[in-house]
């Protein structure tokens, strides 16, 4: 099916929940209302003509400079049955990003959504186990947001980029056991 046909099928079923469709993009995408994404996901998987049984990628994108500031969640779908792709997008406000989970439709969404939560702070309602996946459990903040500032310390370890070794050495700090020594180890016997 062409992307236009896929979009028409979605529009026929969900009407108002499909907000817009961009067919000129390299990967045509449809914008979906956040509340409806779980039903749309179940529909695109179950409907025989669409058959999107594979979620290729779920990403979050941060747009703080747009009006209103928003977070996008992008779903790249693929159908093994019919060999076609499609993209769904969901836009949520940046200060309270809540999206229903699609974990029941595609099992891999469990981990993808945990990552989006971890790095962007998008809360997925209904997720079975929404906790941090890449960062430590006691990490504060969501680093991939555009307004992220590195903290000074994390549990006593320096987080901000530190001056490089040569600068530290030039400033007089004793690094390791001594200065860099490039003499080869296998000197002839009479010199050792």
């Amino acid at each position: 099916m062409t992307p236009q046909e896929i979009h028409d099928a979605l529009k026929a079923r969900f009407g108002e929940a499909i907000l817009s469709f961009d067919e000129k993009a390299l990967d045509p995408w449809a914008l979906v209302k956040p509340e409806a994404i779980a039903e749309v996901a179940a529909f695109v998987k179950a409907e025989p003509a669409l058959g999107f049984d594979n979620l290729m990628c779920l990403s979050a994108v941060d747009w703080p400079k747009e009006t209103p500031p928003r977070l996008d969640v992008v779903y790249h779908l693929y159908s093994y049955k019919h060999d076609h792709t499609f993209v769904l997008k969901v836009q949520v406000p940046r200060d309270n990003p809540r999206v229903p989970t699609v974990e029941g439709t595609w099992g891999v969404a469990n981990w993808h959504e945990r990552e989006a939560f971890d790095l962007y702070g998008v809360v997925f309602d209904g997720h079975s186990d929404l906790r941090r996946i890449l960062l430590p459990d006691d990490w504060q903040g969501h680093p991939l947001r555009k307004d992220w500032e590195d903290p000074e310390l994390y549990n006593g370890m320096r987080v901000k980029p530190t001056p490089q070794m040569a600068e530290r050495y030039a400033a007089g700090e004793k690094i390791g056991v001594g200065p860099f020594d490039f003499t080869p180890p296998n000197l002839p016997l009479e010199q050792s």
Binding site: V159, P161, Q164, G176, V177, F180
Partner: peptide, 27 residues
């Protein structure tokens, strides 16, 4: 492991050199 490597600049989760936590003999 020496000083954070290619991730020294924007690596918020990278330790900038293992000598921050253990004493190192050879780099």
């Amino acid at each position: 492991a020496n000083n954070g490597g290619p991730y020294w600049r924007h690596g918020y989760h990278v330790l900038k050199g293992v000598d921050e936590v253990v004493p190192v003999d050879v780099y």
